[in-house]
């Protein structure tokens, strides 16, 4: 059966049965979080923009913040037949696109905070993070295929890293 390709936009969150290819284009400081249960054959992805909702969560897209996206993604996985103990996670993204020597601005380091908060939420929920490609100063395009449960990470000038 051919894989359907689905491209997720900013703050999107989606869980679908295999076979499927989940894609996010041009992640900078944002995070692409993939979760899957290869036994139940279901996979999900979220395009996370910021670490903490600070009470904004309810009114906005649930995939926007790490603290709201991770629980929502796992809950959706369980609804679609996944078993918590079998769910595995992979993450990519969280780059710092611009470094300004001597300037302090919180938003410039949001990539690292996104990575830290996403990992923290996964840990709290007892979800195994099995691989990641994060940080640095380059954007990433990612593709997750349920044919081999691998996440392809394309970085400009560095080629493809499969995790």
């Amino acid at each position: 059966m051919a894989e359907n390709s689905i491209v997720l936009g900013m703050a999107d969150l989606l869980v679908v049965p295999a076979p499927v290819k989940l894609i996010t284009l041009g992640l900078g400081s944002c995070i692409g979080l993939v979760v899957y249960d290869s036994f139940a054959k279901v996979a999900g992805m979220a395009h996370i923009m910021l670490p903490l909702s600070r009470g904004l969560g309810g009114a906005e897209k649930i995939g926007k913040f790490a603290d709201t996206a991770v629980p929502a993604l796992i809950e959706e996985m369980l609804k679609k037949g996944a078993t918590k103990g079998r769910i595995k996670a992979k993450i990519a993204g969280g780059a710092q696109m611009f470094a300004l020597p001597g300037a302090s601005a919180d938003f410039l380091t949001v990539g690292a905070k996104n990575v830290a908060e996403t990992k923290n939420r996964l840990l709290r929920m007892g979800i195994a993070l099995i691989s990641s490609d994060t940080g640095g100063n380059k954007g990433r395009t990612i593709e997750f295929s349920t044919s081999n449960w691998m996440l392809k990470v394309k970085t400009l000038g560095k080629g493809i890293n499969e995790i």
């Binding site: 910021l50 904004l56 954007g139």
Partner: peptide, 27 residues
């Protein structure tokens, strides 16, 4: 004014910085 930062990358990745400035207060 700060020392400038330079990047060559996908437009989408570059503009993430805009989302991180405005995203915390709204959409």
């Amino acid at each position: 004014i700060s020392v400038p930062g330079v990047a060559h990358d996908m437009l989408s990745s570059i503009l993430d910085v805009v989302a991180s400035i405005y995203g915390q207060m709204g959409e």
